[in-house]
Every structure is written in C-alpha cells, then in structure tokens.
C-alpha cells in the first residue's frame, strides 16, 4: 500500500518537471525517474498529454502580420550623430554670445573710458607735487644718467606706482615733444633742440622716450616737469605752445615743428607721426555694427540649437 503523502509529493514532483521533460531539458536521472512514475500514473499521463496539447496549440497559432513596414526614414540618425551637431551648435552659440559681450564691453569702454582718456589733459585736476616730482625718477629707471641727475634735484621721495601711471604735466608738454610710444627716438648728433612734448595718453612710456632723447642730446635737463613751478600750475596746454589740441593726438602730431621755433631743430628734427590710433568716432560705429551682427548671429544660433535639441529629444532628428 502506497503512502498518500508520498504519492501526492510524487505527483507534484512529476508535474513540476513535465515542462522540462517536453522540451527534453530534464537531466538523465530525473528523466528516468519521471518516466518510471508516468508508467504507473494515469493522472500524470493525462497531465502530460494536456500540456503537450497546449504547446501544440501555441505552435499552431496563426502568425499575425503587420499591416505596414517599420523601415526607418533614411534621414534618421542614431543618438550620437545629432548630439555632436548639437554640441557644435551650442559651442557656436556660446562663442557668439561671448564675442557679443566682449564687444559691448569695448563699446562701453570707448564710450565712457575713452571719453575720459581724451578729456584727461584738459580736465585733469592739479597733480600733487610729489607725483610730478617723481617723474624724473621714473625716467631714471630707464636711463641711468638722467636718473642720476634727476635724483640730485628731486627733493621728494618717489612712489614708483604713481610715477608709472601719471601723465606728464601739461607744462612739460609745452617744452618737450617726444616720439610716440614705441617709436624709435631720433638719433642724430646734430639734434640740439630742446625736446618738445606731444601729449599722448600713456604716461611713462612717453617720459622714458623723452628721457632718452634728452640723454642723446647731452642735455642734463630733466624731461617733463623740470620746474617745480610747472607742477602746481598744470593747466591745459595753450594753443600758442602746442598749436593743436592735445586732446586729439592724431591731429596734434604735425604740430611740434611749429611749436619749438628753433631753426636748428627744424632742420634735423623729423616729424614723427604718432601711431594711427583710430578715433572713437570711427571705431564706435564699427563696434556697434559688429554688436548688431553678433546679436543676430547669437539669436539665430540659439534658436537653431533649441530646435535641434527638441528634435533630438523627440527622436525626429
């Protein structure tokens, strides 16, 4: 007599393995045991038959066919391709925006900072005496001999930072002219005239050039504010001293020949034109045009970036 518990357990055990048995996936020892059980168990035989019937029905099920094709449109690209284009577009947009901001900055500087710079010689307040007196020492940094002579006469201590940034007083400008910053000073043995100073915004470079020319002339005179009296009365240059306004450097350059009426100097002194610094009246419109062009470019690129980004997100691009 068989134990019902063992018998029930045997049915369950067999039932769990029928699926693998149908697919011939049951390991040999288990398959052997299952086949032995099936031989004496009608219930499990029926179960196996119904399971085979179910599987056969599934295999006979009619195959559905789609009503259309699923080919992708040719212009579709995998994820990486539009992303690269999108990155390039974003970079271009950022670059255009950066350029636009830079141009606006330049515009502001030209409009306000440039105006201040050009108005500086005329509207400049009186410089403190120690600043003016420091100028010879500033030139001494570039020229040893002049520095030595100026150190002997300069009574006040120097502040190097101030000396480097302060423009020459207008009184000195009336006496001396100098080649523009960066230009080679004229080296001629016959150059005996006292140097005249053409005011060019810039400061220390001018004075250095002035000091050099003074040394070459053999004149121990200090460039720039040679007299203490000139410092507190640093008034804008008068037209009689510098015929052209110092506020407009390009137009002031031809003047020095007439400013110092020394005949010897006129013979040998070359007229050195200052660097062709474009006036703000010429530069500003160009900057504004550039700003407008960059603004349009940035807006266009930004719109394009947004469109491409949306398309790539929705998978249409």
């Amino acid at each position: 007599m068989s134990n019902p518990q063992i018998e029930r357990n045997g049915h369950e055990w067999a039932e769990e393995r029928l699926s693998d048995y149908i697919d011939d996936r049951l390991p040999f020892p288990e398959r052997n045991r299952l086949e032995q059980h099936l031989q004496g168990c009608e219930r499990c035989q029926a179960s196996l038959a119904s399971l085979r019937w179910t599987v056969s029905l599934l295999k006979r099920a009619p195959a559905p066919t789609p009503s259309r094709s699923f080919f992708l449109p040719v212009e579709q690209k995998p994820a990486g391709v539009p992303l690269f284009g999108l990155a390039a577009l974003r970079f271009a947009t950022a670059l255009a925006t950066l350029l636009l901001v830079s141009l606006i900055g330049i515009d502001l500087i030209l409009q306000f900072g440039g105006a201040n710079a050009t108005a500086r010689p005329a509207a400049r307040p009186l410089s403190p005496p120690h600043v003016a007196l420091s100028q010879p020492s500033a030139s001494s940094a570039s020229d040893q001999s002049v520095g030595a002579s100026s150190a002997a006469t300069a009574p006040l201590p120097l502040t190097p930072g101030a000396a480097a940034t302060v423009a020459p007083p207008p009184a000195a400008k009336a006496q001396s002219t100098v080649a523009p910053a960066g230009a080679q000073p004229f080296r001629s043995a016959g150059l005996t005239s006292t140097p005249t100073y053409a005011p060019i915004p810039g400061g220390s470079g001018e004075r250095t050039a002035s000091a050099k020319s003074a040394t070459e002339n053999g004149s121990p005179t200090r460039p720039g504010p040679l007299t203490l009296g000139a410092v507190p009365t640093a008034a804008p240059p008068e037209p009689t001293q510098t015929p052209t306004s110092p506020a407009v450097p390009p137009t002031a350059t031809p003047a020095p020949a007439t400013a110092t009426p020394s005949p010897g100097a006129l013979e040998s002194k070359p007229v050195v034109p200052p660097p062709s610094a474009p006036s703000t009246s010429v530069v500003l419109p160009a900057v504004r045009i550039g700003e407008l062009a960059l603004l349009f470019l940035a807006v266009f690129l930004g719109s394009l970036t947004v469109m491409v980004g949306r398309r790539s997100r929705t998978g249409k691009g």
Partner: peptide, 8 residues
C-alpha cells in the same frame, strides 16, 4: 512551467 500549466 507555470505559464504552460496555467494556460493548459
């Protein structure tokens, strides 16, 4: 196995 038995 469970799916087959259930469907059967």
């Amino acid at each position: 196995s469970r799916a087959r038995a259930h469907l059967r």
